[in-house]
Write a protein that binds this DNA or RNA. Structure first.
Lengths: 124, 124
DNA sequence: ACAAGTAAGTTACCAATAGTAACCTACATT
DNA sequence: AATGTAGGTTACTATTGGTAACTTACTTGT
């Protein structure tokens, strides 16, 4: 018995594109966390680094300038000494919050679905 | 004038962890697209590859076995000739759909925010 | 006066992940 | 016999991420 490939369910898919479209905006390591940390207002470089402990300066720096380039956040240098830099979400950046909230909700649900920790035992 | 670092807004952050928690489940290239393609029912390897054109066999294969390992989807071999393989979302996998829907919604919103809003399907 | 601290990064180096293209097995059709 | 199909794997390269040390210019502590 030979199989035939089923057609694409969406022959000229409009939606997968939209998924990819949005995913590209929040792409890159820790990008969602950065946006999430900024949701309640402006935040400085080292504050963000403290909010997201396992992130390094290098990656945070890279992510911030990418997100700035994509119009998700603004970089604002303040004339303190030493100079400090504040980042804040743009209007576009704020559009992303509902999606991140949905992801956080799933986070909680996954925890309760699993119920227990799938800790790996020995056996290598 | 010297600055003091503001405290973490969430001193023992429960929510950033939940974000990361869920993001790890959908991590890896094209993982959200794979889940999205499976949302309406089971799908075979080459069908998925057709749904997500720029994905390669290698990456699709890697993503599918990771997602299987995380309990997001099931792999089911059917005794056709040549053997065919169907993938389908588990209950856990279905929990992710609302978050992906939220991301898709943002995708649409970004398009209109940016201005180029070609509701017409013209000219490729 | 001089050492140490701070903010916001950058740099060099290495590891992990993703992309590209060729290849594989076993069976079916032409 | 040659070609096609399904579901991958393999080798190789390119891009991304992680670690740790270093930088610049100003401030504070001893």
């Amino acid at each position: 018995m030979v199989l035939k490939m089923r057609k694409n369910r969406s022959p000229k898919p409009p939606e997968p594109c939209m998924l990819t479209e949005c995913m590209q905006v929040i792409a890159g390591a820790w990008a969602p966390n950065v946006i999430w940390s900024l949701r309640a207002g402006p935040r400085r470089f080292n504050e963000l680094k403290g909010d997201i402990p396992p992130i390094s300066s290098k990656v945070l720096s890279a992510r911030l300038s990418e997100l700035e380039g994509r119009g998700v956040l603004l970089r604002h240098v303040r004339p303190t000494s030493p100079p400090s830099v504040e980042y804040e979400l743009t209007e576009l950046g704020e559009e992303l919050i509902p999606a991140l909230e949905a992801i956080v909700q799933v986070g909680y649900k996954l925890k309760s679905l699993r119920g227990y920790e799938p800790e790996v035992e020995a056996a290598e």
